[in-house]
Amino acid sequence: MTSDLIFVFITAAIINNFIFKYFLGICPFLGVSKRTDMAMGMGFAVTFVMTVAGVLTWIIYHMILVPMNIQFLQYITFILVIAGTVQLVEMYVRKFFPNLYESFGIFLPMITTNCAILGACLFIQKFEYNLIQAAVFSLGGGLGFAMAITIMAGIREELNFSDVPRYFKGPAITLISAAILAMAFSGFLIKR
């Protein structure tokens, strides 16, 4: 049972990394990865919202949607739950951690449209995880996202000092560095 959970965690965090395997959450991955501290903040905000939303949507899906046989409403329900969670987290952080709130700025509301969150909720239903597995999966996925975005920010800080061809400055070179990073991550895929 425990080894199974560890497997779910490692799979979600590294092997099926949300960014390098599923391409979810690319917008913040490119937009917020200019500085390591901001990237880490974003990463942990996403981890938190993802875990809460993953557990909440599991409960709603299995306790409300399935018994009433209205699974076709799942997309609408999930997006509402995510938007609500983000709103709650935003209010909580603003009240109790004003400094953190200042530094998050616009990232928190942006998480609503972060496809990694909705993707995690959908994958949990698709893989038919139970509640504990769902929690572990979304926590692992969030941490994997935080790791990827922090590595990328580190690379981009170094890129500032390198001589990039004129037309490749900005997103183009970021994507190409991401390609090399993704190649390293796909090493986990082939040996199965």
């Binding site: 390098f20 395997k21 391409f23 061809p165 037309y167 490749f168 997103p171 183009a172 070179i173 970021t174 994507l175 190409i176 991401a178 390609a179 090399i180 990073l181 993704a182 190649m183 991550f185 796909s186 895929l189």
Partner: peptide, 25 residues
């Protein structure tokens, strides 16, 4: 094989965006 793997996606998009930047300028 790399082109159908995830890293191929990043690589292709990066190169295409570079090309688009060049054409636009």
């Amino acid at each position: 094989v790399v082109m159908v793997l995830p890293s191929g996606a990043f690589l292709t998009l990066g190169l295409v965006i570079g090309l688009v930047n060049y054409l636009r300028s």
